[in-house]
Design a binder for these strands. Structure first.
Ligand SMILES: [Mn+2]
Ligand SMILES: [Mn+2]
Ligand SMILES: [Zn+2]
Ligand SMILES: [Zn+2]
Lengths: 130, 130
DNA sequence: TCTAAATTTGTAATCATTACAATTTTATAA
DNA sequence: TTATAAAATTGTAATGATTACAAATTTAGA
């Protein structure tokens, strides 16, 4: 994955902070919160500001290369994997995992009244390590 | 729907505030926020406190008669309909509607690694009135 | 190099939620 | 009924996440 090209292709100037934040999201795939992103990256970029993390994530979302994961009502997580997939959160360890979904089985019956543009599927329970 | 019995059956003492809050959720089915619930009910109960709304909703959730709807990352909504259903939010008017789902079509392939206990499905787009 | 635009940063403000102690209401026993 | 204790409600203060905003820094172009 060429992060610089990916940002450039999506009209985002590839600054150091932007590259590092996107790289962190894409490589770790742990659906981190802003605090987690900031805490981990500030080791690499000592001058990093939490405001920059917020600004950058908003920029990513506006340009369609990041999405929020709102599986919990008290934390906002971020995800740079844009291929359709569901999420599972383990109530015990708190990790959020990607879940492959077979879209064909996901068609709803008669949602005539709505034009659906985005779908989010959130599962909770216990993971096999817990 | 006998709200007093419903609360009592779920180990919740049916105070005036609790009855009114549950009644509001169940009858309107608009997935309101705490602010909306408070604003509407304080007309009936002038002494109502927003803290009571928070406390009561937490009590309802802990006793399994209410659930949160986290379709948006900047607002927590509440729902007293516990039968399995999905939610659709119209990006234009902002309303959140219930969507019937055919559970049989919703089975995922191979989620062996997880024991799923709860499922939430959130859709977004445009409703037929917008 | 010089200048302007874009980006980053730090601080203050805002807003939702929680903590907590005081008040009020309800239940129980004398 | 009255007294007492427990439960519920309330108001205010504290907390924590997010946003607003202006200053500082970096980048790009002339
Ligand atoms: Mn994901
Ligand atoms: Mn609903
Ligand atoms: Zn786990
Ligand atoms: Zn609409």
């Amino acid at each position: 994955m060429d992060f610089v090209s990916h940002l450039t292709n999506n009209n985002i100037k590839p600054s150091l902070q932007r590259i590092k934040i996107f790289e962190y999201l894409y490589d770790n795939r742990k659906h981190p919160t802003v605090d987690t992103i900031y805490s981990n990256l500030v080791e690499d970029i000592p001058t990093l500001s939490k405001t920059t993390v917020y600004n950058t994530l908003k920029l990513f979302i506006d340009n369609g290369i990041t999405a929020t994961v709102t599986i919990e009502d008290n934390e906002v997580r971020y995800d740079a994997i844009m291929e359709e997939h569901a999420h599972f959160k383990c109530d015990t360890c708190g990790n959020v995992y990607d879940v492959e979904i077979d879209i064909s089985t996901l068609k709803f019956k008669k949602i005539k009244a709505f034009k659906v543009e985005t779908t989010n599927i959130y599962l909770k329970g216990k993971c096999n390590k817990c």
